[in-house]
């Protein structure tokens, strides 16, 4: 993968609003954003209602994903262009999800909804009609998704990248600062994880930094990109943004996203936790 195959610019999207095999998809948790307005011809996917199992904490099944894409009018050979608010956090999450189920050509709009709005580009209220398709997904690609046992085995062995803000990493905050802080899980981070906030990979307008800047960012933070890497955050959407940077823009092999992230790890019984601003040793503790 490379920047050229994974990212498209706002200009490219404007030029392809009416291209038949290009499907724009807005992904936001805040569904009111799409209802208010969206890029012309964009359909909506709700990261929670459409992509999460309604009962247990897991993804929808392959069959449910096929039904969803069929209902949205997305075909196997369509170019899917994802965008959304929150600096593309949930669009990156959906991108990773589309890759997990093997969609061939999926791309991200650089800068997402924010860049589009700050450029004062056209947004409409009209919801497009797309004919249903018969979509066939692949089995989940296990090489890009990490589970909790992968994390406990990776402590002190693989690169673990905690992409939350420094205050969440150190344990000062339990959630991003636009959310209430009362939570059940422990504060801190997975021992030996480096703290490289997702935001360091993006400019203020939400676009990604250059390849050279991105490579330097991870290397100066001590991430040996020749080793296996797992990224995590609180619920796996900001780390999907970092997974996108490493795996899709920089083309680094063997990078996984841990979607259980801190809401799972921080609630596990008996696992080591590190508090404070340092990665810490494998046993964890308080710095």
């Amino acid at each position: 993968m490379s920047r050229e195959s994974a990212l498209v610019s706002a200009d490219w999207v404007e030029e392809n609003l009416d291209t038949p095999n290009v499907v724009l998809v807005e992904v936001d948790e805040d569904t009111a954003a799409y209802d208010k307005n969206h890029i012309r011809n964009a359909v909506r996917i709700d990261w929670q209602d459409d992509l999460q199992d309604p009962v247990r904490r897991d993804f929808v099944s392959k069959a449910q994903f096929e039904e969803l894409l069929g209902r949205k009018g997305i075909a196997n050979d369509d170019i899917v262009v994802l965008y959304g608010g929150n600096n593309n956090w949930f669009a990156s999450y959906a991108y990773w999800y589309f890759k997990l189920y093997g969609h061939q050509d999926v791309r991200l709009l650089d800068g997402g909804r924010k860049k589009w709005e700050l450029d004062s580009r056209e947004l409409v209220e009209e919801v497009p009609e797309r004919a249903a398709t018969s979509y066939t997904a692949q089995e989940q690609d296990a090489t890009i998704r990490a589970f909790r046992d992968d994390l406990t085995a990776a402590i002190g062995v693989q690169n673990i990248v905690d992409v939350r803000s420094p205050d969440e990493y150190s344990g000062k905050l339990l959630a991003p600062a636009h959310l209430p802080q009362e939570q059940s899980q422990r504060a801190g981070h997975i021992p030996t994880a480096a703290n490289i906030p997702w935001s360091k990979a993006a400019n203020d307008d939400g676009t990604f930094r250059s390849d050279a800047e991105l490579k330097e960012l991870y290397e100066t933070e001590g991430v040996d990109l020749s080793k296996d890497t797992i990224a995590y955050c609180r619920i796996g959407e900001r780390s999907a943004h970092t997974w996108f940077v490493l795996h899709e823009i920089l083309g680094v092999d063997n990078v996984k996203n841990y979607d259980g992230s801190w809401t799972e790890y921080g609630s596990l019984v008996g696992v080591p936790v590190q508090k404070g601003a340092v990665p810490g040793g494998p046993e964890g503790g308080e710095a």
Binding site: D28, E29, D30, G85, L179, I235, E237
Partner: peptide, 10 residues
């Protein structure tokens, strides 16, 4: 959740 609610939460 991690998404930004318009205007911040109530």
């Amino acid at each position: 959740m991690c998404s930004a609610t318009v205007g911040g939460l109530s």
